[in-house]
Simulated assay, not measured.
Amino acid sequence: MQNIPQMHASFMKDSQMFAQYMGDTRIPMVDARDIAKAALAGLTSDAFNGKIHYITGPQSISFDDVAKAFSKPLGKDIIYVNLTYEDQKAGLEAYGTPDMIVQTVMSLFKRWSEGEDQPTTSDYEKITGERATDINTFAAEVAGSF
């Protein structure tokens, strides 16, 4: 989730929109703070040894969901604009993003946008005993820093 303000905060604030190549794909975005909590629990308990855990957010969300989540705390209607693959790639390159990162990011975006919606897991909740942060809570917590 931290990629959202990193990549889109200025557009949301100044233009009431943000653009991304993802269509209506739904992915289980996760708050980096939740990853850290799960890692701490895994490092301080033997209960999780020898097991693979997939840490996800509590639900798979689209970028339209992201726009709606940020609209409320920002006090304005935020619109998500779906970019084409070519426009997203050109934008990253124009920004000066190193080629290796452009290739990696675009490969991931393409796989997500052309594949099925990505499922969630309950692994975070099993490990920490807490519910993972949802996009509405995240948006409310970080929008004030825009």
Rank of each mutant, 00 (worst) to 15 (best):
Q2H: 10
N3S: 15
I4L: 08
Q6A: 15
Q6S: 14
H8R: 07
H8M: 07
A9E: 07
A9S: 01
S10Q: 15
S10V: 12
F11Q: 15
D14I: 05
D14S: 10
Q16P: 01
Q16L: 12
F18T: 01
A19L: 04
A19Y: 08
M22W: 11
T25W: 13
I27N: 02
M29W: 15
R33M: 08
R33C: 08
R33V: 13
D34W: 12
D34G: 07
A36S: 02
A36P: 08
K37C: 03
A39E: 08
A39Q: 04
L40V: 12
G42S: 03
G42C: 07
T44Y: 14
S45C: 04
A47R: 10
N49S: 09
G50V: 07
G50M: 01
G50C: 06
G50E: 06
K51S: 07
K51I: 02
I52K: 09
H53G: 04
Y54L: 10
I55E: 01
G57P: 09
G57R: 01
P58I: 00
Q59T: 11
S60E: 12
I61Q: 09
F63D: 12
D64P: 09
D64N: 11
D65H: 05
D65G: 00
V66S: 06
A69V: 06
F70A: 05
F70W: 10
K72I: 03
K72P: 06
K72S: 11
G75K: 06
D77H: 12
D77N: 08
I79S: 12
Y80F: 15
Y80T: 10
Y80N: 09
N82L: 06
T84Y: 02
T84R: 03
Y85H: 12
E86Y: 00
Q88L: 00
K89S: 11
A90W: 03
E93N: 12
E93V: 05
E93M: 13
E93W: 10
G96R: 06
T97R: 10
P98Y: 07
D99P: 14
D99T: 14
I101D: 06
V102N: 01
T104A: 12
S107E: 01
S107G: 15
S107F: 10
S107V: 06
F109E: 05
W112H: 10
S113R: 04
S113M: 00
G115V: 02
G115R: 03
G115D: 00
E116L: 14
D117F: 11
D117I: 09
Q118C: 14
T120V: 10
T120I: 08
T121M: 09
T121G: 00
S122D: 09
D123S: 03
D123P: 09
Y124M: 04
Y124Q: 03
Y124N: 04
E125D: 11
K126L: 12
G129D: 01
G129W: 03
E130V: 14
R131I: 15
R131W: 13
R131G: 14
R131D: 15
A132G: 05
A132D: 08
D134P: 02
I135F: 13
I135S: 04
T137M: 13
F138Q: 09
A139C: 00
A139K: 00
A140W: 13
A140F: 12
A140V: 02
A140Q: 14
E141T: 14
V142E: 09
A143N: 04
G144D: 04
G144F: 03
F146L: 04
